[in-house]
């Protein structure tokens, strides 16, 4: 009877079982995870120095929303960022945010902005993400946004795992908006573990009276280790064998 039931079990029922088994294996503690322990925000600028304000609000048990601002020397940075620590169901986490940087000082200023979350994740990890933005010149002179290093980077423990918008050079007429375009990537493998943080960094120089805004995401996911992959394959083969019978 039991055998007959197995034979008659439709494939649509077997597949979810295999997937559930696979999921349980992947999410095992041996594969690591990200524990949300905090949120980091730093702004370095030639305009001046001050301590950013950052208010973190829990959205769910694993998701947090952060709103912050920084002001010094006529320049300002503001952000809203949503962060999810390690999710054991999806085996992933992410940080995504919107940043607006404004230079109201009388001269061009350099900015280095790092927003992210602190914690750890056992590698290897795969990272995916994106960045898009606009440059707005609200002055009566020609405005510029430049960067001789990657304007945007996803960092794992402070080391770039992926960078975009390399060697940026953008000009805008008075009261003109220039779209910086967007960049998307996925499947970037980080062979090592994240020991302390995963973050987004922006580096650029911006003319007086200008504004730059960016939308950015970084998501990370555990790479199944060889043992888990072998178990998944075994589960698949087992299911196939049963169906054949």
């Amino acid at each position: 009877m039991g055998r007959k039931r197995l034979i008659q079990t439709p494939m649509s029922t077997l597949l979810p079982r295999a997937a559930l088994l696979s999921g349980l294996l992947i999410s095992g503690p041996a594969l690591g995870g990200f524990s949300l322990e905090g949120f980091t925000a730093s702004v370095l600028s030639t305009a001046g120095s001050s301590t950013p304000t950052n208010t973190v609000t829990p959205v769910s048990s694993t998701t947090w929303s952060a709103t912050g601002a920084w002001t010094a020397g006529g320049a300002s940075v503001s952000w809203t960022d949503n962060t999810q620590g390690w999710n054991p169901v999806t085996n992933s986490g992410f940080t995504n945010g919107n940043f607006v940087v404004r230079n109201q000082s009388a001269s061009a200023q350099d900015f280095s902005i790092t927003i992210g979350m602190t914690g750890s994740a056992a590698g290897p990890l795969t990272i995916s993400g994106s960045v898009g933005g606009q440059f707005l010149n609200a002055s009566t002179a020609l405005g510029s946004l430049t960067s001789t290093v990657p304007l945007w980077a996803a960092l794992v423990d402070g080391t770039p795992a992926r960078s975009e918008f390399n060697n940026t050079l953008v000009f805008a007429q008075p009261f003109q908006i220039i779209s910086l375009g967007n960049a998307n990537f996925s499947g970037v493998v980080v062979p090592t573990s994240a020991a302390s943080n995963i973050s987004i960094r922006l580096n650029f120089r911006m003319s007086a009276g200008s504004e730059a805004s960016f939308s950015s995401t970084v998501a990370f996911q555990a790479v199944p280790n060889p043992g888990a992959v072998a178990l998944i394959a075994l589960a698949g083969a087992f299911g196939r064998r049963r169906r054949r019978r």
Partner: peptide
């Protein structure tokens, strides 16, 4: 159309130049 992706758009203006 990509997970965690973005798309930027610039859709016109008036009065420039």
């Amino acid at each position: 159309t990509a997970a965690n992706g973005t798309t930027s758009f610039s859709d016109g203006s008036f009065g420039f130049p």
